[in-house]
Design a protein around this nucleic acid. Structure first.
Length: 561
RNA sequence: GCCCCUGUAGCUCAGUUGGAUAGAGCAACUGCCUUCUAAGCAGUGGGCCACAGGUUCGAAUCCUGUCAGGGGUACCA
């Protein structure tokens, strides 16, 4: 926005030697605020004009016609440093930043975001929470940018791993149910998955029995199907509770059991088009050597299909149902090969979905003691984590305030969720992250509760003033200036987060913003000060922008801590 | 073996896609609550940006190699 204005003025002055977007890309923000608000490095012009950068900067600073928004421009060692007129900036920024559309876009695309996608043999864990947090945040980001968003999940509800918990339950449950044991239903199912793993490690025949059960399931054996339905229901009901607790939901949930046989038409089409081939033993294979992806089997010699075939089908099905412009898959980085193959196959087939699909890959969550393994029970369970964090939040609250039972309940949950979500989103999604349950759920410093606290402080000020004083835009002090400047960066932050599909960009911005606000809060009295009118507008602006950030992170704000 | 990702303060992470003196939070130490919420603010210490070359006006950022860690390379899902 501001960069555009600078680019425009420079463009004229530079006799069109560089085009506007080039200029805009070169413009940066100086490392120190005393050096100016924006800077244009003249080094790349040195070659064009055959002069040294300092000289160019010097000349430009003299001839440049500055728009009102800028106070002055100073050449410093090859840079052209621009200083904003803070009074005009404040007036402009505070005039727009409280609007619902501040920072938003109007892209009008139709987007499908697939996330969560659990297996129905065990409860959700920390890895799912990272997935869900990312999926929800990205969905909101798309939505904020003016797109229609459809949230989907594919429940992996069949296969030998599902039969494992079924088998253990079938043989060892002694009539227990979630109801008569009082256990949350997905945890109940998960217990039998762990039990199976224990049994199988002692006795190899359990694995064979699981395979046998899968065969029975596939031939629709009555007992097996009834067992499967019962346990899946338990698992899915449990997930639904966790989703609700976490504040998310889906427009459409798919089930592997509905689609796992589909997709053969696509395979046949590939055979007809000769992009797939039939191996001697009858298996259908696609050669992707040209993309360094090797040979991928699609149909086994017995004619049954491999997992990827149903994903081919699902991509096409979703396209038919949603007519999407873009389909985002929030799936861990261990499946990068899978999605590379998926997209490569669509390219070979000449399907347009090839260009509309995007695997949004994210890194794994590791614990101090290493990788999580659900079979070994070394996972951080999602419900347990939320409960435990909530308990800690509740203790903190009780230490500080007198609250009713209801308020305590509501606030401790919101604070806990803010802590968890922020922790999971502030780290660049492409990176593996370490999650130390003891340290990670802290409420101080760079955390979700810090953001909520800052928000509550701003709300508190606004609650306590009835002032109708007009905002007078006089000279700003350093804290006011910093806050205005940071607020003015919100639209650029959104653009950057959107381009990179990166919630962490928003999280980091929100923290900086809150930090600057807290410094302002500490240094500048609002109510009763000479510039009360202006400062109230500033607090309102801050609160409005922080609220948007929180929303984009899937975090609910609270008016009081 | 081959392919991909990562390596920045004691720990967890930023670093505006090649720019000026590399930044936060935590932890450690020191101050600040008769003042809009101290889950806060201010300050001190802490760095061979894994290592070695290269590209250029300029590199934590790009290229090559080495080392270390993780993932993938299933007729599992």
């Amino acid at each position: 926005m501001m960069k555009e204005i600078i680019a425009d003025t420079l463009y004229v002055q530079l006799e069109e030697k560089l085009d506007k977007s080039q200029i805009e890309q070169l413009i940066e923000i100086p490392p120190d605020e005393q050096m100016g608000d924006f800077a244009f490095p003249c080094f790349s012009l040195a070659r064009i004009y055959k002069k040294n950068p300092a000289e160019i900067a010097g000349q430009l600073s003299e001839t440049l016609k500055l728009p009102d928004l800028f106070e002055k421009v100073i050449p410093v060692s090859g840079y052209l440093n621009f200083f904003l007129n803070k009074r005009i900036l404040a007036k402009q920024v505070l005039g727009v930043c409280q609007s619902d559309t501040y920072g938003s876009k109007n892209l009008k695309k139709n987007i499908v975001v697939e996330f969560a996608s659990p297996n129905t043999n065990k409860p959700l864990h920390l890895g799912h929470l990272r997935n869900i947090s990312i999926g929800e945040s990205i969905s909101r980001l798309f939505s904020f940018c003016g797109n229609k968003v459809n949230r989907t999940s594919i429940n992996n509800d069949r296969g030998v791993h599902i039969c494992k918990s079924m088998l253990a339950y079938d043989l060892l449950s002694e009539g227990k149910t979630p109801e008569n044991t009082g256990k949350k239903s997905d945890h109940f199912v998960g217990d039998y998955y762990v039990l199976f793993s224990k049994k199988a490690s002692e006795d190899e025949s359990w694995n064979e029995k699981a395979q046998e059960m899968l065969r029975k399931w596939e031939t629709a054996d009555e007992h097996t199907v009834r067992l499967w339905k019962t346990m899946n229901k338990w698992a899915l009901e449990g997930f639904a509770q966790t989703y609700r607790l976490f504040g998310i939901g889906f427009d459409k949930e798919y089930f592997e059991s509905d689609i796992y046989k589909s997709g053969k038409e696509i395979v046949n089409e590939g055979l007809e088009k000769k992009v797939f081939y039939k191996r001697d033993d009858g298996a259908v294979v696609v050669n992707l050597e040209h993309q360094k992806l090797g040979n991928k089997v699609l149909l086994r010699p017995d004619g049954t299909s491999v997992y990827i075939v149903q994903d081919l089908y699902l991509a096409v099905l979703k396209d038919r149902e949603f007519n999407y412009d873009k389909s985002i898959y929030v799936v861990g980085n261990e499946q990068e090969y899978h999605f590379a193959v998926l997209i490569a196959i669509f390219k070979l087939l000449g399907y347009p979905v090839a260009n509309k699909m995007k695997h949004l890959s994210y890194g794994m969550v590791e614990l101090p003691e290493g990788k999580m393994k659900s079979r070994e029970g070394t996972v951080v369970d999602a419900d347990d984590l939320i409960e435990e964090t909530k308990r800690l939040a509740s203790e903190e609250l009780k230490q500080r305030y007198e609250l009713s039972e209801n308020d305590l309940e509501e606030r401790s949950l919101k604070i806990a969720l803010s802590a968890i979500k922020y922790q999971l989103l502030k780290i660049d999604i492409s990176k593996n992250m370490l999650f130390d349950p003891k340290k990670a759920i802290s409420f101080e410093g760079d955390t979700g509760p810090y953001l909520l606290y800052s928000y509550a402080r701003a709300s508190s000020i606004l609650r306590k003033t009835e002032s109708k004083k007009d905002a007078v835009f006089s000279d700003l002090n350093i804290h006011e200036t910093r806050l205005v400047r940071k607020i003015s960066f919100f639209p650029d932050t959104i653009t950057s987060a959107f381009e990179r599909l990166s919630p962490s960009v928003i999280a980091n911005y929100a923290f900086d913003l809150a930090q600057i606000f807290n410094e302002f809060y500490h240094a500048c009295k609002v109510i009763g000060s000479d510039s009360e009118g202006f400062r109230i507008e500033l607090v309102k602006g801050f609160r409005s922008v922080l609220k948007k950030c929180l929303w984009l992170l899937g975090i609910e704000e609270i008016e009081e801590m």
